[in-house]
Amino acid sequence: MSKKKEARKITFESEKEMPVAPMSLGSMLYNKTGAWRNIKPVIDLSRCIKCGICWKFCPDASIDIVDDWPQINYVYCKGCGLCAEECPQKCIAMVEEEK
């Protein structure tokens, strides 16, 4: 993708601004789904064996690989707990969200 993805919600002032055909103009990144979460995953990196399983199974593409380590993107993580369940080392803990 050449164009940089923006986390901005697109709105129209009037119908004249709208495209002729109903087409997508931006990504869903504006929708910060992290707010859906009640419990959040926390990775204990000291026990991580870098198997990549948490990254592989995240249905929200919310686990990034940063400097060869898994890193949870809390802006979008919905807190389903799949990564904690699948982690062979059991080094991901689901902790209650403080709000």
Binding site: Y30, K32, A61, S62, D68, G81
Partner: peptide, 21 residues
């Protein structure tokens, strides 16, 4: 090294409207 067995490219961005899990 991190074990990567499937392509790293993501074509789906987070923020979509699926249920948890």
């Amino acid at each position: 090294k991190m074990t990567i067995t499937i392509p790293r490219e993501e074509y789906m961005s987070p923020g979509h409207l699926a249920c948890q899990g």
